[in-house]
């Protein structure tokens, strides 16, 4: 078994001080190195909250998050910022590129924050990544002049530039059409296999969930299912996730069915 990269113990999150809303009810989760895992669940099940806590953007009300044994709770704000910069890559639903900068500059920003001067090695790395996501012709275009899919690919390159151990995605294809979603999935797979990056993706997309290695389903702030797709066939894997997204057609794939199964 590969080493555990990220681990949570009894993770709880309560929002609000007067009217309290408990979003996470004790999550125990362990993510191993090299895993490509999806987190699925209905809206409000706590997926994004969990991901933000795992990404050191938000703090749990109680419980622990450990990254290679390092406890987030014992790190200062600045430690956490440096940690995010060096070990994590984020991909959001809305690409969240900085419109003031070009594609290449956007990819370089995490290296600037790390203290790099934007020269030599970093630029080479950024260009390689943009090449990997198929955008080597768009280096110097402002991000606002790129299509949605292109922007999301720039965001993926940006998430990878500091060679993070863990890539976190919060509905990274939520805003894209199905063809582009396929491309992005392909990229995730490439990154996972070629760079050995661990991926943890919150997704509403049955397609991506079905094709990831592992699926963690949250229901009302608890892990309701946690299984591996590796032993299942493609169709079975899809049947497993479909009901989450299609309440009224438990045995039919959502979004037009079989055509999504590649």
């Amino acid at each position: 078994m590969a080493e555990i990269v990220l681990e949570t113990k009894e993770l709880k999150k309560v929002y609000g001080t007067q009217v309290k809303t408990q979003v996470l009810h004790g999550i125990d989760l362990a993510v191993r190195k090299g895993e490509f895992a999806s987190i699925i669940g209905y809206s409000g099940s706590g997926k994004s909250t969990l991901l933000n806590i795992l990404g050191a953007l938000d703090k749990p009300t109680s419980g622990q998050v450990l990254f290679r044994g390092m406890d987030f709770g014992k790190m200062t704000e600045n430690d956490l910022a440096a940690f995010r910069n060096e070990n994590l890559g984020f991909i959001f639903q809305f690409h969240h590129l900085l419109p003031e900068f070009t594609a290449l500059e956007n990819v370089l920003i995490p290296t600037w924050i790390r203290g790099g001067r934007g020269r030599g090695k970093d630029v080479k790395k950024a260009k390689e990544l943009l090449d990997l996501v198929g955008l080597s012709e768009f280096l110097n275009k402002k991000s606002t002049n790129l299509s949605g899919g292109q922007q999301q690919r720039v965001a993926i390159a940006r998430a990878l530039v500091n060679e993070p151990a863990l890539l976190l995605g919060d509905e990274p294809t939520g805003n894209l059409d199905s063809d582009t979603t396929d491309q992005i999935y392909g990229l995730f797979r490439t990154i996972n296999e070629e760079l050995g990056t661990t991926l943890l993706i919150v997704t509403h997309n049955d397609h991506i969930a079905a094709k990831s290695d592992r699926v963690v389903e949250l229901t009302d702030g608890k892990v309701s299912r946690d299984y591996s797709n590796l032993e299942l066939g493609a169709e079975d894997a899809f049947r497993q996730v479909a009901p989450v997204y299609c309440k009224f057609c438990p045995h039919q794939p959502a979004h037009g069915g079989q055509s999504h199964l590649l």
Partner: peptide, 8 residues
């Protein structure tokens, strides 16, 4: 975004 990427 900058903060998420590690800006203090």
């Amino acid at each position: 975004i900058l903060k998420a990427m590690g800006a203090r």
